[in-house]
Design a protein around this nucleic acid. Structure first.
Length: 631
DNA sequence: TTAGGGTTAG
Protein backbone atom coordinates (compact mmCIF):
# COMPACT_ATOMS: atom_id res chain seq x y z
CA UNK A 1 0.00 0.00 0.00
CA UNK A 2 1.23 3.52 -0.62
CA UNK A 3 -0.03 7.04 -0.30
CA UNK A 4 -0.10 9.78 -2.85
CA UNK A 5 -1.71 13.20 -2.59
CA UNK A 6 -3.36 12.16 0.62
CA UNK A 7 -5.06 9.13 -0.85
CA UNK A 8 -4.36 5.51 -0.05
CA UNK A 9 -3.84 3.01 -2.81
CA UNK A 10 -3.46 -0.66 -2.68
CA UNK A 11 -2.00 -2.83 -5.41
CA UNK A 12 -3.47 -6.25 -5.34
CA UNK A 13 -4.15 -8.99 -7.83
CA UNK A 14 -7.67 -9.10 -9.08
CA UNK A 15 -8.68 -11.95 -11.28
CA UNK A 16 -5.11 -12.49 -12.38
CA UNK A 17 -4.57 -8.79 -13.06
CA UNK A 18 -2.80 -6.32 -10.87
CA UNK A 19 -5.19 -3.51 -10.02
CA UNK A 20 -5.42 -0.46 -7.86
CA UNK A 21 -8.10 -0.69 -5.28
CA UNK A 22 -10.06 2.26 -4.07
CA UNK A 23 -9.23 4.04 -0.83
CA UNK A 24 -12.14 2.49 0.97
CA UNK A 25 -10.94 -0.98 0.05
CA UNK A 26 -7.36 -0.02 0.81
CA UNK A 27 -8.29 0.95 4.30
CA UNK A 28 -9.84 -2.40 5.00
CA UNK A 29 -7.27 -4.50 3.17
CA UNK A 30 -3.99 -5.68 4.69
CA UNK A 31 -0.95 -3.52 3.95
CA UNK A 32 0.89 -5.85 1.69
CA UNK A 33 2.32 -5.67 -1.76
CA UNK A 34 2.59 -8.78 -3.85
CA UNK A 35 6.31 -9.24 -3.45
CA UNK A 36 6.81 -12.97 -3.45
CA UNK A 37 8.32 -14.69 -6.44
CA UNK A 38 5.29 -17.00 -6.85
CA UNK A 39 3.00 -14.10 -6.76
CA UNK A 40 5.01 -12.22 -9.35
CA UNK A 41 4.75 -15.16 -11.68
CA UNK A 42 0.98 -14.78 -11.77
CA UNK A 43 1.09 -11.14 -12.77
CA UNK A 44 0.27 -10.01 -16.24
CA UNK A 45 2.59 -8.46 -18.79
CA UNK A 46 4.21 -5.46 -17.08
CA UNK A 47 3.93 -3.16 -20.09
CA UNK A 48 0.25 -3.79 -20.54
CA UNK A 49 -0.15 -3.16 -16.89
CA UNK A 50 1.78 0.07 -16.87
CA UNK A 51 -0.10 1.38 -19.90
CA UNK A 52 -3.55 0.25 -18.88
CA UNK A 53 -3.51 1.86 -15.49
CA UNK A 54 -3.93 5.54 -14.81
CA UNK A 55 -1.14 7.09 -16.89
CA UNK A 56 -0.78 9.97 -14.49
CA UNK A 57 -0.18 7.68 -11.64
CA UNK A 58 3.25 6.14 -11.45
CA UNK A 59 4.31 5.35 -7.95
CA UNK A 60 7.94 4.12 -7.68
CA UNK A 61 6.81 0.83 -6.20
CA UNK A 62 4.47 0.29 -9.09
CA UNK A 63 7.34 0.76 -11.57
CA UNK A 64 9.51 -1.59 -9.58
CA UNK A 65 6.77 -4.15 -9.40
CA UNK A 66 6.39 -4.02 -13.16
CA UNK A 67 10.14 -4.44 -13.53
CA UNK A 68 10.17 -7.43 -11.23
CA UNK A 69 7.72 -9.26 -13.42
CA UNK A 70 9.77 -8.74 -16.59
CA UNK A 71 10.85 -12.09 -17.96
CA UNK A 72 13.19 -10.90 -20.70
CA UNK A 73 15.42 -8.05 -21.75
CA UNK A 74 13.01 -6.74 -24.40
CA UNK A 75 10.26 -6.26 -21.81
CA UNK A 76 12.69 -4.53 -19.49
CA UNK A 77 13.56 -2.16 -22.34
CA UNK A 78 9.88 -1.38 -22.92
CA UNK A 79 9.26 -0.80 -19.24
CA UNK A 80 12.41 1.33 -19.20
CA UNK A 81 10.89 3.54 -21.92
CA UNK A 82 7.59 3.82 -20.09
CA UNK A 83 9.39 4.74 -16.89
CA UNK A 84 11.37 7.39 -18.77
CA UNK A 85 8.19 8.83 -20.33
CA UNK A 86 6.63 9.31 -16.94
CA UNK A 87 9.67 11.04 -15.51
CA UNK A 88 10.41 8.27 -13.04
CA UNK A 89 14.06 8.07 -14.10
CA UNK A 90 14.78 10.70 -11.50
CA UNK A 91 13.92 8.28 -8.81
CA UNK A 92 17.11 6.47 -7.77
CA UNK A 93 15.20 3.59 -6.24
CA UNK A 94 13.51 2.88 -9.56
CA UNK A 95 16.66 3.33 -11.65
CA UNK A 96 18.67 1.03 -9.42
CA UNK A 97 16.04 -1.62 -9.84
CA UNK A 98 16.10 -1.09 -13.58
CA UNK A 99 19.88 -1.43 -13.52
CA UNK A 100 19.62 -4.57 -11.47
CA UNK A 101 17.06 -6.13 -13.81
CA UNK A 102 19.28 -5.53 -16.84
CA UNK A 103 22.21 -7.00 -15.02
CA UNK A 104 20.18 -9.92 -13.68
CA UNK A 105 19.20 -10.83 -17.22
CA UNK A 106 22.79 -10.52 -18.43
CA UNK A 107 22.12 -7.36 -20.47
CA UNK A 108 25.25 -5.63 -19.27
CA UNK A 109 25.38 -3.31 -22.27
CA UNK A 110 21.98 -1.85 -21.43
CA UNK A 111 22.91 -1.70 -17.78
CA UNK A 112 26.15 0.11 -18.46
CA UNK A 113 24.48 2.59 -20.82
CA UNK A 114 21.93 3.40 -18.15
CA UNK A 115 24.66 3.57 -15.52
CA UNK A 116 26.61 6.03 -17.67
CA UNK A 117 23.56 8.25 -18.06
CA UNK A 118 22.79 8.36 -14.37
CA UNK A 119 23.31 11.78 -12.86
CA UNK A 120 23.26 10.41 -9.38
CA UNK A 121 24.67 7.11 -8.14
CA UNK A 122 24.40 5.61 -4.73
CA UNK A 123 26.22 2.58 -3.26
CA UNK A 124 23.52 0.31 -4.67
CA UNK A 125 24.08 1.56 -8.22
CA UNK A 126 27.82 0.91 -7.94
CA UNK A 127 27.53 -2.54 -6.49
CA UNK A 128 24.88 -3.62 -8.98
CA UNK A 129 27.16 -2.55 -11.82
CA UNK A 130 30.33 -4.07 -10.38
CA UNK A 131 28.44 -7.28 -9.53
CA UNK A 132 26.82 -7.44 -12.95
CA UNK A 133 30.19 -7.55 -14.70
CA UNK A 134 31.53 -10.04 -12.19
CA UNK A 135 28.60 -12.38 -12.74
CA UNK A 136 29.00 -12.50 -16.51
CA UNK A 137 32.72 -13.08 -16.14
CA UNK A 138 33.78 -9.70 -17.54
CA UNK A 139 36.49 -9.12 -14.96
CA UNK A 140 38.22 -6.23 -16.73
CA UNK A 141 35.01 -4.15 -16.87
CA UNK A 142 34.27 -5.20 -13.31
CA UNK A 143 37.68 -3.91 -12.19
CA UNK A 144 37.21 -0.80 -14.36
CA UNK A 145 33.92 0.09 -12.70
CA UNK A 146 35.42 -0.59 -9.32
CA UNK A 147 38.31 1.80 -10.06
CA UNK A 148 35.80 4.37 -11.28
CA UNK A 149 34.02 4.02 -7.97
CA UNK A 150 37.19 4.60 -5.99
CA UNK A 151 38.16 7.59 -8.18
CA UNK A 152 34.71 9.13 -7.78
CA UNK A 153 35.36 9.27 -4.07
CA UNK A 154 32.47 6.95 -3.25
CA UNK A 155 33.05 4.34 -0.58
CA UNK A 156 33.00 0.70 -1.51
CA UNK A 157 30.81 -1.25 0.88
CA UNK A 158 30.10 -4.78 1.99
CA UNK A 159 28.08 -5.32 -1.18
CA UNK A 160 30.66 -4.06 -3.67
CA UNK A 161 33.68 -5.78 -2.19
CA UNK A 162 32.41 -9.38 -2.41
CA UNK A 163 31.41 -8.72 -6.02
CA UNK A 164 34.82 -7.53 -7.15
CA UNK A 165 36.40 -10.34 -5.12
CA UNK A 166 34.27 -12.74 -7.10
CA UNK A 167 35.86 -11.49 -10.34
CA UNK A 168 39.32 -12.12 -8.84
CA UNK A 169 38.23 -15.58 -7.76
CA UNK A 170 36.87 -16.51 -11.18
CA UNK A 171 40.02 -15.40 -12.97
CA UNK A 172 42.38 -16.66 -10.23
CA UNK A 173 43.75 -13.14 -10.08
CA UNK A 174 45.62 -13.27 -6.80
CA UNK A 175 47.40 -9.97 -7.33
CA UNK A 176 44.15 -8.05 -7.75
CA UNK A 177 42.64 -10.11 -4.94
CA UNK A 178 45.23 -8.81 -2.53
CA UNK A 179 44.61 -5.23 -3.66
CA UNK A 180 40.91 -5.76 -3.09
CA UNK A 181 41.56 -6.99 0.42
CA UNK A 182 43.63 -3.93 1.27
CA UNK A 183 40.87 -1.66 -0.06
CA UNK A 184 38.32 -3.55 2.04
CA UNK A 185 40.50 -3.22 5.14
CA UNK A 186 41.02 0.51 4.54
CA UNK A 187 37.27 0.89 4.39
CA UNK A 188 36.75 -0.84 7.70
CA UNK A 189 35.28 -4.03 6.29
CA UNK A 190 37.70 -6.50 7.85
CA UNK A 191 35.02 -7.95 10.10
CA UNK A 192 32.25 -8.28 7.54
CA UNK A 193 31.32 -11.88 6.88
CA UNK A 194 30.32 -11.31 3.25
CA UNK A 195 33.59 -9.57 2.49
CA UNK A 196 35.75 -12.08 4.35
CA UNK A 197 33.83 -15.09 3.04
CA UNK A 198 34.40 -13.97 -0.54
CA UNK A 199 38.11 -13.36 0.17
CA UNK A 200 38.51 -16.81 1.75
CA UNK A 201 37.06 -18.39 -1.37
CA UNK A 202 39.22 -16.26 -3.63
CA UNK A 203 42.42 -17.20 -1.79
CA UNK A 204 41.52 -20.86 -1.86
CA UNK A 205 40.78 -20.76 -5.56
CA UNK A 206 44.07 -18.95 -6.19
CA UNK A 207 45.90 -21.79 -4.46
CA UNK A 208 47.03 -19.88 -1.38
CA UNK A 209 45.08 -21.93 1.10
CA UNK A 210 47.20 -20.66 3.99
CA UNK A 211 45.85 -17.12 3.48
CA UNK A 212 42.32 -18.52 3.32
CA UNK A 213 42.88 -20.46 6.52
CA UNK A 214 44.22 -17.45 8.35
CA UNK A 215 41.42 -15.13 7.27
CA UNK A 216 38.85 -17.73 8.25
CA UNK A 217 40.45 -18.15 11.66
CA UNK A 218 40.28 -14.40 12.25
CA UNK A 219 36.62 -14.05 11.32
CA UNK A 220 34.57 -13.20 14.39
CA UNK A 221 31.06 -14.19 13.35
CA UNK A 222 31.07 -17.24 11.17
CA UNK A 223 27.74 -18.34 9.85
CA UNK A 224 26.80 -21.51 8.01
CA UNK A 225 27.85 -20.11 4.64
CA UNK A 226 31.25 -19.08 5.96
CA UNK A 227 31.89 -22.56 7.33
CA UNK A 228 30.66 -24.13 4.11
CA UNK A 229 33.01 -22.00 2.03
CA UNK A 230 35.99 -23.04 4.14
CA UNK A 231 35.01 -26.73 4.14
CA UNK A 232 34.74 -26.61 0.35
CA UNK A 233 37.97 -24.66 -0.04
CA UNK A 234 39.97 -27.15 2.02
CA UNK A 235 38.54 -30.12 0.16
CA UNK A 236 39.35 -28.56 -3.17
CA UNK A 237 42.90 -27.71 -2.20
CA UNK A 238 43.57 -31.32 -1.28
CA UNK A 239 43.30 -30.94 2.50
CA UNK A 240 40.28 -33.20 2.66
CA UNK A 241 41.00 -34.55 6.13
CA UNK A 242 41.22 -31.05 7.53
CA UNK A 243 38.02 -30.21 5.69
CA UNK A 244 36.21 -33.07 7.44
CA UNK A 245 37.68 -32.05 10.80
CA UNK A 246 36.34 -28.57 10.21
CA UNK A 247 32.89 -30.02 9.58
CA UNK A 248 33.03 -31.70 13.00
CA UNK A 249 34.17 -28.47 14.60
CA UNK A 250 31.34 -26.58 12.95
CA UNK A 251 28.81 -28.98 14.42
CA UNK A 252 30.42 -28.75 17.85
CA UNK A 253 29.92 -25.01 17.66
CA UNK A 254 26.23 -25.56 17.19
CA UNK A 255 25.95 -24.73 13.50
CA UNK A 256 23.42 -26.98 11.79
CA UNK A 257 24.45 -27.95 8.25
CA UNK A 258 22.06 -27.75 5.34
CA UNK A 259 22.01 -29.40 1.94
CA UNK A 260 24.66 -27.17 0.41
CA UNK A 261 27.00 -27.69 3.35
CA UNK A 262 26.55 -31.44 2.97
CA UNK A 263 27.41 -31.30 -0.72
CA UNK A 264 30.76 -29.82 0.28
CA UNK A 265 31.27 -32.44 2.99
CA UNK A 266 30.40 -35.22 0.55
CA UNK A 267 32.87 -33.70 -1.90
CA UNK A 268 35.55 -33.73 0.80
CA UNK A 269 34.86 -37.44 1.39
CA UNK A 270 35.21 -38.07 -2.33
CA UNK A 271 38.57 -36.33 -2.34
CA UNK A 272 39.65 -38.13 0.79
CA UNK A 273 38.65 -41.51 -0.53
CA UNK A 274 37.93 -42.94 2.89
CA UNK A 275 34.97 -45.30 2.68
CA UNK A 276 34.34 -45.38 6.40
CA UNK A 277 34.01 -41.61 6.52
CA UNK A 278 31.76 -41.68 3.45
CA UNK A 279 29.36 -44.09 5.12
CA UNK A 280 29.38 -41.99 8.28
CA UNK A 281 28.46 -38.88 6.30
CA UNK A 282 25.75 -40.74 4.40
CA UNK A 283 24.28 -41.91 7.71
CA UNK A 284 24.38 -38.39 9.04
CA UNK A 285 22.40 -37.17 6.04
CA UNK A 286 19.83 -39.92 6.64
CA UNK A 287 19.58 -39.35 10.39
CA UNK A 288 19.20 -35.63 10.04
CA UNK A 289 16.57 -36.16 7.34
CA UNK A 290 18.39 -33.78 5.06
CA UNK A 291 16.29 -33.93 1.91
CA UNK A 292 18.14 -35.26 -1.06
CA UNK A 293 18.09 -33.54 -4.39
CA UNK A 294 19.80 -34.21 -7.66
CA UNK A 295 22.91 -32.23 -6.69
CA UNK A 296 23.46 -33.95 -3.35
CA UNK A 297 22.75 -37.38 -4.82
CA UNK A 298 25.16 -36.80 -7.70
CA UNK A 299 27.82 -35.74 -5.23
CA UNK A 300 27.14 -38.97 -3.32
CA UNK A 301 27.55 -41.09 -6.45
CA UNK A 302 30.93 -39.48 -6.94
CA UNK A 303 31.80 -39.95 -3.27
CA UNK A 304 31.05 -43.67 -3.17
CA UNK A 305 32.75 -44.27 -6.49
CA UNK A 306 35.88 -42.41 -5.39
CA UNK A 307 35.86 -44.33 -2.13
CA UNK A 308 36.07 -47.52 -4.15
CA UNK A 309 32.47 -48.62 -3.69
CA UNK A 310 30.90 -48.71 -7.13
CA UNK A 311 27.99 -50.78 -5.82
CA UNK A 312 26.78 -48.06 -3.44
CA UNK A 313 27.30 -45.46 -6.14
CA UNK A 314 25.10 -47.40 -8.55
CA UNK A 315 22.50 -47.96 -5.82
CA UNK A 316 22.12 -44.22 -5.32
CA UNK A 317 22.03 -43.70 -9.05
CA UNK A 318 19.24 -46.26 -9.44
CA UNK A 319 17.06 -44.80 -6.70
CA UNK A 320 17.32 -41.19 -7.82
CA UNK A 321 13.97 -39.63 -8.66
CA UNK A 322 15.51 -37.16 -11.04
CA UNK A 323 18.67 -37.66 -13.07
CA UNK A 324 20.25 -35.02 -15.23
CA UNK A 325 23.22 -35.00 -17.56
CA UNK A 326 25.60 -34.44 -14.64
CA UNK A 327 24.32 -37.47 -12.73
CA UNK A 328 24.66 -39.66 -15.82
CA UNK A 329 28.14 -38.30 -16.54
CA UNK A 330 29.20 -38.90 -12.93
CA UNK A 331 28.11 -42.55 -13.16
CA UNK A 332 29.78 -43.01 -16.55
CA UNK A 333 32.98 -41.46 -15.21
CA UNK A 334 32.82 -43.72 -12.15
CA UNK A 335 32.77 -46.85 -14.30
CA UNK A 336 35.56 -45.29 -16.30
CA UNK A 337 38.03 -44.81 -13.49
CA UNK A 338 37.19 -48.23 -12.12
CA UNK A 339 38.26 -49.70 -15.42
CA UNK A 340 34.77 -50.90 -16.36
CA UNK A 341 34.69 -49.28 -19.77
CA UNK A 342 32.04 -51.59 -21.13
CA UNK A 343 29.59 -50.67 -18.37
CA UNK A 344 30.31 -46.98 -18.94
CA UNK A 345 29.53 -47.42 -22.64
CA UNK A 346 26.34 -49.35 -21.81
CA UNK A 347 25.02 -46.39 -19.83
CA UNK A 348 25.19 -44.10 -22.84
CA UNK A 349 22.19 -45.48 -24.80
CA UNK A 350 20.25 -45.73 -21.54
CA UNK A 351 20.87 -42.08 -20.92
CA UNK A 352 19.70 -41.18 -24.41
CA UNK A 353 16.54 -43.20 -24.11
CA UNK A 354 15.68 -41.42 -20.87
CA UNK A 355 15.70 -38.20 -22.85
CA UNK A 356 18.97 -36.73 -21.55
CA UNK A 357 21.41 -35.28 -24.06
CA UNK A 358 25.16 -35.69 -23.49
CA UNK A 359 27.44 -32.70 -22.97
CA UNK A 360 31.16 -32.20 -23.42
CA UNK A 361 31.99 -33.76 -20.09
CA UNK A 362 29.89 -36.84 -20.83
CA UNK A 363 32.10 -37.44 -23.85
CA UNK A 364 35.34 -36.80 -21.98
CA UNK A 365 34.16 -39.38 -19.43
CA UNK A 366 33.23 -41.89 -22.11
CA UNK A 367 36.55 -41.44 -23.88
CA UNK A 368 38.52 -41.86 -20.66
CA UNK A 369 36.45 -44.93 -19.85
CA UNK A 370 37.54 -46.40 -23.19
CA UNK A 371 41.11 -45.36 -22.58
CA UNK A 372 41.32 -46.91 -19.10
CA UNK A 373 39.89 -50.16 -20.41
CA UNK A 374 41.90 -50.29 -23.61
CA UNK A 375 38.77 -50.07 -25.77
CA UNK A 376 40.49 -48.32 -28.64
CA UNK A 377 37.96 -48.99 -31.40
CA UNK A 378 35.04 -48.00 -29.18
CA UNK A 379 36.86 -44.80 -28.26
CA UNK A 380 37.38 -43.93 -31.92
CA UNK A 381 33.68 -44.56 -32.53
CA UNK A 382 32.64 -42.31 -29.63
CA UNK A 383 34.96 -39.58 -30.88
CA UNK A 384 33.36 -39.53 -34.31
CA UNK A 385 29.83 -39.96 -32.97
CA UNK A 386 30.36 -36.98 -30.71
CA UNK A 387 31.15 -34.74 -33.66
CA UNK A 388 28.87 -36.16 -36.31
CA UNK A 389 25.73 -36.98 -34.32
CA UNK A 390 25.85 -34.52 -31.45
CA UNK A 391 27.67 -31.59 -32.98
CA UNK A 392 30.11 -31.42 -30.06
CA UNK A 393 33.36 -29.86 -31.25
CA UNK A 394 36.28 -31.61 -29.58
CA UNK A 395 38.21 -29.43 -27.18
CA UNK A 396 41.68 -30.03 -25.81
CA UNK A 397 40.39 -32.47 -23.20
CA UNK A 398 38.78 -34.68 -25.82
CA UNK A 399 42.03 -34.69 -27.78
CA UNK A 400 43.90 -35.51 -24.59
CA UNK A 401 41.64 -38.52 -24.04
CA UNK A 402 42.22 -39.64 -27.61
CA UNK A 403 45.98 -39.24 -27.41
CA UNK A 404 45.88 -41.13 -24.13
CA UNK A 405 43.76 -43.87 -25.72
CA UNK A 406 45.91 -44.27 -28.83
CA UNK A 407 49.18 -43.67 -27.01
CA UNK A 408 48.56 -46.29 -24.33
CA UNK A 409 47.83 -48.75 -27.12
CA UNK A 410 51.15 -47.82 -28.72
CA UNK A 411 49.43 -46.37 -31.79
CA UNK A 412 51.71 -43.34 -31.92
CA UNK A 413 51.26 -42.60 -35.63
CA UNK A 414 47.54 -42.16 -35.23
CA UNK A 415 47.96 -40.10 -32.07
CA UNK A 416 50.42 -37.76 -33.81
CA UNK A 417 48.22 -37.47 -36.88
CA UNK A 418 45.28 -36.49 -34.70
CA UNK A 419 47.42 -33.87 -32.97
CA UNK A 420 48.51 -32.48 -36.34
CA UNK A 421 44.91 -31.95 -37.34
CA UNK A 422 43.53 -30.45 -34.17
CA UNK A 423 42.27 -26.92 -34.32
CA UNK A 424 42.58 -26.08 -30.65
CA UNK A 425 45.71 -25.08 -28.84
CA UNK A 426 47.81 -27.87 -27.38
CA UNK A 427 48.28 -27.61 -23.64
CA UNK A 428 50.45 -29.28 -21.04
CA UNK A 429 47.86 -31.95 -20.33
CA UNK A 430 47.86 -33.09 -23.93
CA UNK A 431 51.65 -33.32 -24.17
CA UNK A 432 51.65 -34.95 -20.75
CA UNK A 433 49.36 -37.71 -22.06
CA UNK A 434 51.70 -38.32 -24.97
CA UNK A 435 54.72 -38.37 -22.67
CA UNK A 436 52.97 -40.91 -20.43
CA UNK A 437 52.42 -43.15 -23.44
CA UNK A 438 56.10 -42.81 -24.38
CA UNK A 439 57.03 -43.89 -20.87
CA UNK A 440 54.78 -46.93 -21.11
CA UNK A 441 56.18 -47.99 -24.48
CA UNK A 442 59.74 -46.77 -23.83
CA UNK A 443 59.66 -44.56 -26.88
CA UNK A 444 62.65 -42.43 -25.93
CA UNK A 445 62.86 -40.48 -29.21
CA UNK A 446 59.30 -39.29 -29.17
CA UNK A 447 59.53 -38.68 -25.43
CA UNK A 448 62.38 -36.27 -25.97
CA UNK A 449 60.49 -34.36 -28.64
CA UNK A 450 57.38 -34.29 -26.49
CA UNK A 451 59.34 -33.15 -23.48
CA UNK A 452 60.79 -30.29 -25.50
CA UNK A 453 57.29 -29.03 -26.24
CA UNK A 454 56.44 -29.32 -22.58
CA UNK A 455 59.55 -27.47 -21.49
CA UNK A 456 58.80 -24.77 -24.06
CA UNK A 457 55.39 -24.39 -22.52
CA UNK A 458 57.27 -23.87 -19.24
CA UNK A 459 55.36 -26.70 -17.66
CA UNK A 460 55.08 -26.18 -13.95
CA UNK A 461 53.98 -29.73 -13.38
CA UNK A 462 56.82 -31.56 -11.64
CA UNK A 463 55.25 -34.81 -12.84
CA UNK A 464 56.27 -34.00 -16.42
CA UNK A 465 59.91 -33.54 -15.46
CA UNK A 466 59.88 -36.66 -13.35
CA UNK A 467 58.38 -38.63 -16.21
CA UNK A 468 61.10 -37.51 -18.62
CA UNK A 469 63.71 -38.16 -16.00
CA UNK A 470 62.32 -41.69 -15.60
CA UNK A 471 62.49 -42.24 -19.32
CA UNK A 472 66.17 -41.24 -19.34
CA UNK A 473 66.77 -43.42 -16.31
CA UNK A 474 65.21 -46.41 -18.09
CA UNK A 475 67.44 -45.76 -21.07
CA UNK A 476 70.44 -45.54 -18.75
CA UNK A 477 71.06 -41.94 -19.79
CA UNK A 478 72.04 -40.72 -16.36
CA UNK A 479 73.56 -37.47 -17.55
CA UNK A 480 70.39 -36.40 -19.32
CA UNK A 481 68.45 -37.40 -16.27
CA UNK A 482 70.66 -35.22 -14.08
CA UNK A 483 70.12 -32.28 -16.45
CA UNK A 484 66.39 -32.59 -16.09
CA UNK A 485 66.75 -32.68 -12.33
CA UNK A 486 68.84 -29.52 -12.52
CA UNK A 487 66.21 -27.83 -14.63
CA UNK A 488 63.62 -28.72 -12.02
CA UNK A 489 65.74 -27.11 -9.35
CA UNK A 490 66.24 -24.02 -11.50
CA UNK A 491 62.53 -23.71 -12.07
CA UNK A 492 61.95 -24.31 -8.39
CA UNK A 493 59.88 -27.40 -8.97
CA UNK A 494 59.89 -30.16 -6.45
CA UNK A 495 58.78 -33.70 -7.04
CA UNK A 496 55.47 -34.16 -5.25
CA UNK A 497 56.23 -36.69 -2.52
CA UNK A 498 54.28 -39.92 -2.82
CA UNK A 499 51.92 -40.82 0.00
CA UNK A 500 49.72 -43.81 0.63
CA UNK A 501 46.78 -43.75 3.01
CA UNK A 502 45.01 -46.62 4.68
CA UNK A 503 41.97 -46.52 6.91
CA UNK A 504 41.98 -48.66 10.01
CA UNK A 505 39.47 -48.62 12.84
CA UNK A 506 38.24 -45.12 12.10
CA UNK A 507 41.72 -43.76 11.75
CA UNK A 508 43.64 -42.87 8.64
CA UNK A 509 47.34 -43.77 8.52
CA UNK A 510 49.69 -42.18 6.05
CA UNK A 511 52.90 -43.68 4.73
CA UNK A 512 55.81 -42.19 2.77
CA UNK A 513 58.62 -44.11 1.11
CA UNK A 514 60.89 -45.68 3.74
CA UNK A 515 58.59 -44.38 6.46
CA UNK A 516 59.49 -45.19 10.08
CA UNK A 517 56.91 -43.01 11.76
CA UNK A 518 54.21 -45.58 12.28
CA UNK A 519 54.01 -46.85 15.88
CA UNK A 520 54.14 -50.43 14.56
CA UNK A 521 56.91 -49.65 12.12
CA UNK A 522 59.26 -52.45 13.17
CA UNK A 523 56.50 -55.01 12.95
CA UNK A 524 55.55 -53.70 9.50
CA UNK A 525 59.08 -54.05 8.11
CA UNK A 526 59.46 -57.53 9.54
CA UNK A 527 56.14 -58.56 8.08
CA UNK A 528 57.14 -57.09 4.72
CA UNK A 529 60.41 -59.01 4.74
CA UNK A 530 58.60 -62.31 5.31
CA UNK A 531 56.06 -61.38 2.70
CA UNK A 532 58.77 -60.76 0.08
CA UNK A 533 60.15 -64.22 0.70
CA UNK A 534 56.76 -65.79 0.08
CA UNK A 535 56.16 -63.69 -3.01
CA UNK A 536 59.53 -64.55 -4.49
CA UNK A 537 58.73 -68.23 -4.09
CA UNK A 538 55.54 -67.53 -6.02
CA UNK A 539 57.57 -65.95 -8.82
CA UNK A 540 57.69 -62.24 -7.98
CA UNK A 541 60.77 -60.46 -9.32
CA UNK A 542 61.28 -56.81 -8.34
CA UNK A 543 61.23 -54.59 -11.43
CA UNK A 544 64.04 -52.15 -10.88
CA UNK A 545 63.16 -50.19 -14.01
CA UNK A 546 60.89 -48.14 -11.83
CA UNK A 547 63.63 -46.83 -9.63
CA UNK A 548 64.77 -43.35 -10.54
CA UNK A 549 68.15 -43.23 -8.90
CA UNK A 550 71.45 -44.18 -10.44
CA UNK A 551 72.30 -46.83 -7.86
CA UNK A 552 73.35 -50.46 -8.05
CA UNK A 553 70.82 -53.24 -8.43
CA UNK A 554 70.79 -54.12 -4.76
CA UNK A 555 70.22 -50.51 -3.79
CA UNK A 556 67.37 -50.29 -6.28
CA UNK A 557 65.65 -53.29 -4.74
CA UNK A 558 66.04 -51.70 -1.32
CA UNK A 559 64.30 -48.50 -2.42
CA UNK A 560 61.54 -50.40 -4.18
CA UNK A 561 60.79 -52.56 -1.18
CA UNK A 562 59.87 -49.59 1.00
CA UNK A 563 57.53 -47.78 -1.39
CA UNK A 564 54.63 -46.27 0.50
CA UNK A 565 52.11 -48.61 -1.19
CA UNK A 566 53.96 -51.63 0.10
CA UNK A 567 54.23 -50.31 3.65
CA UNK A 568 50.52 -49.50 3.76
CA UNK A 569 49.58 -52.90 2.41
CA UNK A 570 51.85 -54.68 4.87
CA UNK A 571 50.22 -52.76 7.71
CA UNK A 572 46.77 -53.57 6.30
CA UNK A 573 47.59 -57.26 6.14
CA UNK A 574 48.97 -57.54 9.64
CA UNK A 575 46.29 -55.41 11.29
CA UNK A 576 43.14 -56.93 9.78
CA UNK A 577 41.62 -60.42 10.00
CA UNK A 578 42.24 -62.83 7.18
CA UNK A 579 39.99 -62.47 4.19
CA UNK A 580 39.23 -58.76 4.80
CA UNK A 581 39.43 -56.51 1.78
CA UNK A 582 42.25 -53.96 1.95
CA UNK A 583 41.73 -50.47 0.59
CA UNK A 584 44.52 -47.97 0.07
CA UNK A 585 44.78 -44.58 -1.64
CA UNK A 586 47.81 -43.03 -3.25
CA UNK A 587 48.29 -39.42 -4.29
CA UNK A 588 50.41 -40.30 -7.34
CA UNK A 589 50.14 -43.05 -9.91
CA UNK A 590 50.87 -46.47 -8.51
CA UNK A 591 54.35 -47.61 -9.51
CA UNK A 592 54.73 -50.50 -11.94
CA UNK A 593 56.65 -52.68 -9.54
CA UNK A 594 54.13 -52.05 -6.76
CA UNK A 595 51.39 -53.01 -9.22
CA UNK A 596 53.08 -56.38 -9.82
CA UNK A 597 53.77 -56.75 -6.11
CA UNK A 598 50.11 -56.21 -5.21
CA UNK A 599 48.99 -58.74 -7.80
CA UNK A 600 51.19 -61.35 -6.15
CA UNK A 601 50.03 -60.30 -2.67
CA UNK A 602 46.40 -60.75 -3.67
CA UNK A 603 47.18 -64.28 -4.85
CA UNK A 604 49.47 -65.39 -2.00
CA UNK A 605 47.40 -63.94 0.87
CA UNK A 606 44.01 -64.52 -0.79
CA UNK A 607 42.97 -60.94 -0.14
CA UNK A 608 41.06 -58.51 -2.31
CA UNK A 609 42.95 -55.22 -2.51
CA UNK A 610 41.48 -51.99 -3.83
CA UNK A 611 43.95 -49.29 -4.76
CA UNK A 612 42.98 -45.76 -5.61
CA UNK A 613 45.76 -43.87 -7.34
CA UNK A 614 45.88 -40.38 -8.84
CA UNK A 615 44.22 -41.59 -12.02
CA UNK A 616 41.95 -44.50 -11.34
CA UNK A 617 41.06 -47.55 -9.28
CA UNK A 618 42.73 -50.93 -9.37
CA UNK A 619 40.84 -53.90 -7.98
CA UNK A 620 43.27 -56.73 -7.27
CA UNK A 621 41.99 -60.25 -6.83
CA UNK A 622 43.59 -63.65 -7.12
CA UNK A 623 46.71 -62.38 -8.81
CA UNK A 624 45.05 -60.11 -11.39
CA UNK A 625 44.10 -56.47 -11.58
CA UNK A 626 40.87 -55.02 -12.94
CA UNK A 627 42.92 -52.67 -15.11
CA UNK A 628 44.27 -55.67 -17.00
CA UNK A 629 47.71 -54.05 -16.62
CA UNK A 630 46.42 -51.37 -18.90
CA UNK A 631 46.77 -48.14 -16.98
C1' DT B 1 21.92 -4.89 -5.11
C1' DT B 2 25.72 -9.21 -1.24
C1' DA B 3 28.17 -14.73 -0.02
C1' DG B 4 28.19 -21.39 -0.21
C1' DG B 5 26.23 -26.88 -4.20
C1' DG B 6 27.22 -32.11 -8.25
C1' DT B 7 30.25 -34.76 -13.35
C1' DT B 8 35.84 -34.91 -16.90
C1' DA B 9 40.93 -33.59 -16.97
C1' DG B 10 45.11 -31.74 -14.33
Amino acid sequence: MFKRKGRCFLLAPDNGKLRFHSTSLARSAPETLPHSRDHRATLLDPCTRLQSEDANFFAPKFCVLSLLSCKGVSTIRQVHTLIAVTGMLHNLYVVNKLLYMYSYHGALKDAYALFGAMTERDPVSWSVMVGGFAKVGDSSRCYGTFRELIRSGAQPDNYTMPMVTRACRDTSDLQMGRVVQSVAWKNGLSLDRFVCGALVEMYARCGVIEDARQLFAEMPDKDLVTWTVMIGALAESGDADESLDLFDRMRREGIVPDKVAMVNVVHACAKFGALHKAREVHNYIRMRSITLNVVLETAMIDMYAKCGCLGSAREIFETMKEKNVISWSAMIAAYGYHGQGRKALDLFPMMLSSGILPNKITFVSLLYACSHAGLVEDGLRVFSLMQNDYGVEPDVQHYTSMVDLLGRAGRFDEALKLMDHMRVEKDQGLWGALLGACRKHRNVDLAERTAKSLLELKSNNPGHYVLLSNIYANAGRWEDMANIRDLMTKRRLKKVPGWTWIEMANKVYRFAVGDNNHPRSEEIYLFLKNLFEKLELAGYVPDTDFVLHDVDEEGKVGILSTHSEKLAIAFGLLATPEGTCIRISKNLRVCGDCHTFIKFVSAVTKRAIVVRDANRFHHFKEGACSCGDYW
